[in-house]
Design a protein around this nucleic acid. Structure first.
Length: 115
DNA sequence: GGTATGACGGACA
DNA sequence: ATGTCCGCCATAC
């Protein structure tokens, strides 16, 4: 079991309802910036994931419009309150999930205002 | 064990 | 805007 797969699985699980993330975003957070396809593979293999919350970086659903999967994904997302256009595009600025920024730790006190 | 194929994404014509 | 080519990685033949 590569911990990489597990990281990806964990990350996808962390995407809150009503929010979305991109394949690349997940890959990056997992440490493989240039392997969005890896995320695809993981989603495909693990049925129990909120796969609908992962979309392309263009802000669109990755499946081709009209396909079964496309429809299912649209339905699931709408069910969680996400507005999805006919062509499957979603407003990333509004719905993209961002992991909480790690607060500075260590000696921020003395260097905080030195930037 | 190559080779092709994706729910990808970036570069470039 | 549209299309091709390529790097990436797991899977399926």
């Amino acid at each position: 079991m590569s911990s990489l797969n597990e990281k990806i699985i964990a990350l996808v699980h962390n995407i809150p309802r009503g929010r979305v993330a991109t394949y690349q975003q997940i890959a990056a957070l997992a440490g493989k910036i240039q392997a969005p396809r890896l995320v695809v593979a993981v989603l495909k293999k693990n049925e129990s994931l909120p796969w609908q919350r992962v979309i392309a970086k263009t802000g669109k659903i990755a499946f081709k419009p009209g396909t079964h999967n496309f429809k299912v994904q649209v339905r699931l997302l709408k069910r969680e309150g996400v507005i999805v256009a006919k062509d499957g595009s979603i407003n990333l600025g509004k719905y993209q999930w961002r992991r909480k920024p790690r607060r500075l730790r260590g000696q921020p006190h003395m260097f905080r205002d030195k930037l």
